[in-house]
Design a protein around this nucleic acid. Structure first.
Lengths: 234, 234
DNA sequence: CGGAATCCTCTTCGATACTG
DNA sequence: CAGTATCGAAGAGGATTCCG
């Protein structure tokens, strides 16, 4: 049973060793940080440094190791951005992109556990994009088609809703042609998103600004928020 | 920053410390073994010993610790079975049951990674029940309403399909009123479920037996199997 | 700048032994 | 049967360094 340490031991991966679909999935993406890494990449390609920023506390060695493992499993791929950027980025492959239902299910379930941000909690506007995208879907009302752009603490992202509330997409980059733009600081934005503060109040007090607002856009945005924090906020 | 060890240190839980729905969910159920434990309980209440059997390699201390943590978070609850059984079991709470979409999403994604069982892989018929339950759903064709009972290697479980393919349920106990019963050994059953062997061949060779079969039941069962192993088997 | 490699400490895991 | 206690092994997580 014991194997001699060859010079190039292939570093066998830890596995649950169960012939089960769930266990097999967790063998691939169940380790610590891995699904959060997929979450980061689910809103678009990212550089190593961006990923470090989006995963506070991970450490460079662990991130590099996770990326390498995911690449070996065909979930993540390295790519070079077209000029003039030309930077090396990591992005999800097709297989990796198909993890979206997993992220969505986790986000929806976790929404009911998420209360107001604690003192020590890190906050990123991009995470709200994932939550918004997950809250939407075929059965969620309020999925009014359109493109909603956000610029929160200088960080841009957008959510695009297709027809019938399906084909929802969240990306961590500026919207090309937004129907509505919401701009402001993360604290206020999160307060609105979790309905601790109404959008009207935030806009009137000047802490949040909107652009290009059409009739009903604001209501559609608020309708999302009803789904962001589940039953907790009543 | 350093805190003195008080006599009743509340044993702070490790957390990603991110104000994000996904991270929050993983704080609760993202540790090693935890989601597999939820999988085990998703097919019905289980005793400590049953859980140990369904999670080979977990170690008793770790299982006890996970159960305690999940109980503290309101995901799992202890219960006593009604007489004459009277045994102590663990079961999912409402909150825990709502993790089902997470299990389903993982199972569906993991299905495409699951190939033929390796030599070292543990096998359990109950896991196939979870895979079958996950493969079904609103959008999966072939969800013919009815109750399908299985007795594989002496282990009984059943899958019940409601109207329109929704309300699918998998339980690790005998079906009360099955429309179709499939009985046999795990190896053959898994071969059929993954379409490496046709049900007809298995029945004709006597390694699998069916009872109470009605017109179309067999076809409905085979239709499931098309979803068990995704694109891999073409 | 992007990322890999090293070192060291701490926590968690995993197997076994032990107790109510 | 249901756990607790224990201990070696493995992984996490910082800091720092090296290399292209």
């Amino acid at each position: 049973m014991k194997e001699e340490d060859g010079p190039k031991m292939v570093e066998k991966k830890r596995s649950y060793g169960q012939h089960c679909t769930v266990a097999r999935a967790l063998d691939a993406v169940g380790e610590r940080w891995t699904l959060l890494l997929v979450r980061e990449l689910s809103t678009g390609p990212k550089r190593f440094k961006d990923l470090l920023g989006g995963l506070p506390g991970i450490g460079t060695n662990l991130l590099a190791g996770r990326l390498k493992a995911l690449e070996a499993e065909g979930i993540v791929r390295r790519a070079t951005l077209p000029p003039p950027a030309g930077s090396n980025v990591y992005e999800l492959t097709g297989l990796g992109g198909e993890l979206e239902p997993v992220i969505v299910a986790l986000s929806r379930w976790g929404a009911r556990l998420l209360d107001a941000p604690g003192e020590e909690d890190a906050v990123s506007a991009g995470w709200a994009a994932v939550a918004m995208r997950s809250a939407l879907g075929p059965e969620a009302s309020g999925g009014r088609p359109g493109t909603y752009g956000f610029r929160i603490d200088g960080e841009a992202f957008h959510v695009r809703v297709g027809h019938g509330g399906e084909e929802v997409e969240a990306r961590q980059d500026p919207a090309p042609d937004p129907d509505l733009i919401v701009e402001g600081d993360a604290e206020t934005f999160l307060a609105v998103a979790s309905r601790r503060l109404s959008l009207e109040e935030a806009v009137q007090s000047g802490t949040l600004r909107t652009e290009g607002e059409q009739e009903g856009d604001r209501e559609a945005f608020m309708a999302w928020c009803k789904h962001l924090i589940g039953s907790a906020a009543g």
